[in-house]
Amino acid sequence: MKTFTIQQINDVIKGELLSNTTQLITGPEQLEQAGESQITFIGHKKYAKSWDTCKACAVIINADIELTPIDNKAIIKVKNADVAMAMVLEMFVEEGPVFDTAIHPTATIHATATIGEGCQIGAGCYIGKNVVLGKGVTLYPNVTILDETSIGAATTIWSGSVIREKCVIGAYCIIHPNATIGADGFGFRPSPDGRGLIKIPHIGNVVIGNGVEIGANSCVDRGKFSATTIGDGCKIDNLVQIGHNSKMGRCCIMAGSSGLAGSVTLGDGVIVGGGACISDHVTLGNGVQVGGQSGVINNFSDGAKVLGYPAIDSRDALKQWVILRKLVKESKSHNYS
């Protein structure tokens, strides 16, 4: 078990240490559940009153929060408690699963594949023809990498993931369990005789930049003609669908169960809330924020904040909801059925 003194923690987060503790810290925990050897954090004033009853031996707080010092309980003030806590969590990260051998004997690796220095390949992995793995790539057990795919240095792919043929994945990416990269795009048209559907082949690929993280059970479909692209630094949650030929800029965020239909274009820094859906051929500019459960069917320019179904400017959506609540109250007061 890792332990740190409060001074060692403060040396990392570089806050203002307002009071001290002699207790060795065994890990971080949320405010209500923290024990006597743990550190917690308060990022909003409304939670400050809980500090008096919290059992934690230390707390990280935002600069605008004031707490009463308690004997042998440390207080560290920082500009952003959420960022500081992320740094503390990094200190307590344990080493991942251990590979007894760098390349497990049950892994199947095509003779034409290129395996970079320091790669680790777990049991049951399949690596196809002309695949290229950069230095330090880690494939956990039962990962499938199909023909002519390339994966950049220090990328980690967790068990059950499938990377289809001819895809390109950058360096320092993390792909979580059972994600699929390069599945066929969803394209069908009614057959001329009216008796069924014609499947549209998708002969493109997926190109993923550096530092991208893709959550468990998410899917990125291959392009119909060219590539579905995900820019550097994008973070994609679990159970996310990205349709064929979509293009994501740099450092976009997509929360769980959200989705992009085909040929969607996102600028840099777009945030898509959980369960939100973006219709096909929609373009969202840099920094657009889409509220959870929204349905976006129109283009929005840089910096827009949208909400609702169909999504509109968030301020207008909130005003509409207030008006609807007032109408409901009025109808009840007049006993309208």
Rank of each mutant, 00 (worst) to 15 (best):
N62H: 12
A304V: 08
D316T: 14
C234H: 10
V98L: 14
F186W: 06
Q33V: 13
S37P: 02
M1P: 04
V168H: 09
D193L: 05
E36L: 10
H334Q: 15
A154M: 13
A171M: 01
N217V: 10
I70A: 13
T229P: 05
V93N: 10
G274E: 09
V282N: 07
S246H: 04
M87R: 14
K73F: 08
C251D: 13
G196H: 06
P141S: 03
K129P: 00
A107H: 01
G43L: 03
S226W: 12
I297C: 11
S150R: 13
S301D: 15
L31W: 09
N130E: 13
I174Y: 11
V132S: 10
K45R: 14
Q38R: 06
G256Q: 02
V131S: 04
A113F: 07
V12H: 07
R222V: 01
L318P: 00
E117W: 00
L146W: 15
G35D: 12
K305C: 06
I200W: 09
K77V: 02
P310I: 02
V88T: 08
I121H: 01
D280C: 08
A63K: 12
K73D: 04
I109M: 10
A261R: 04
A123K: 12
P141Y: 00
Q293Y: 08
A216V: 02
V206Q: 10
K129F: 03
V264L: 06
V240D: 04
S294H: 07
P105V: 13
A81M: 04
V290D: 06
A58L: 02
S50V: 03
V220F: 11
I65H: 00
T68W: 06
C251V: 03
G160W: 07
N142M: 11
N142T: 07
D232I: 00
I42M: 04
Y126P: 04
K46H: 09
N205S: 15
G249Y: 12
N178T: 08
G215P: 09
F300T: 01
I39V: 13
S246C: 07
I230N: 08
T180V: 15
C219M: 04
T155N: 05
N80D: 15
H202I: 03
V143N: 00
I65Q: 01
N238Y: 05
T156K: 13
S337E: 13
R315H: 13
W321V: 14
G285F: 09
N335L: 08
V93L: 11
N80I: 04
D11G: 12
A153M: 11
Q120N: 13
E213W: 02
L327G: 01
D221T: 09
S258V: 10
A311E: 10
H176D: 03
A81C: 05
D268M: 01
G243Q: 01
V220M: 07
D52N: 12
P105E: 15
G285Q: 12
N217H: 14
K77W: 02
D313L: 03
V59A: 06
I103R: 09
L260V: 09
T229S: 14
E36G: 11
A111T: 12
N62P: 09
E95W: 03
I70R: 15
I42D: 01
I65L: 00
Y309W: 08
I61P: 11
T228S: 13
I76H: 07
G182H: 12
G243Y: 02
K199G: 03
N238A: 01
I278V: 14
A86Q: 10
G136C: 07
F300Q: 05
I208D: 00
Y140C: 15
L327C: 05
T283P: 11
G249L: 08
T21C: 07
K326H: 10
W51R: 04
R164M: 12
